[in-house]
Amino acid sequence: MLGFFALLGRKTLDSFGRLGRATLFLLRALAGLPSLLPRPTLVIQQLYSIGVLSLLIIVVSGVFVGMVLALQGYNTLVTFGAEQSLGVLVALSLLRELGPVVTALLFAGRAGSALTAEIGLMKTTEQLSGMEMMAVDPMKRVVAPRLLAGFIAMPLLAAIFSFLGIMGAYVVSVATLGVDDGAFWSQMQSAVDFREDVMNGVIKSLVFGFVASWIAVFEGYDCEPTSEGVSRATTRTVVHTSLAVLGLDFVLTAVMFG
């Protein structure tokens, strides 16, 4: 019984320690951001591996999520004769929730895990140490560009996801379900508010992008420098990012739409 409390206590202390390290780490990384200004190439490189290489999965998932939403929504709405509102249903679910959240979850799996593994391996193979000994701060050279790139890439990916989702829903609704073309768009336009829906979605994905990249680079930097440590850190990145995104989504939704 005492063992249980000891375990609980140790776990609690551990997680507080990690939280503290993560915060200090973030502050140091943020302090490194100004040094990127004269060297945009570093960020562009990371935008490529974080953003461009995630495009495929985002495009495919976006289109399919949109099409499925249309099919499912149609079945429900048609019983009330409200299938004209299909566009509204799809657009609001994508813009407010699915776009930012699903993009963030896919991001954690595709880009976040890769970030953690890359930085973790750099640590394991002494590349970070080597950099320090060459008087190059890995915080500025390695961590800061990745953090910034993740922050920039996420809202763009989420916008692409939502847009393609709506397009996918449009094709399914109009071509196969027989929803009126004009009604689909006009209903959507009168119900969707730019500030309320589109911008709030963008704000959400900015927050998610920040948190997801923070977790990914921190886990990589903080990992135990062994192959097992890297693999555990990679798993933690995906799990922690997903949990953080879902939790934050609840809070943000409550604040924005509550």
Partner: peptide, 8 residues
């Protein structure tokens, strides 16, 4: 470094 620590 022992491992060389080259950037892979």
């Amino acid at each position: 470094f022992q491992s060389g620590a080259l950037f892979t």
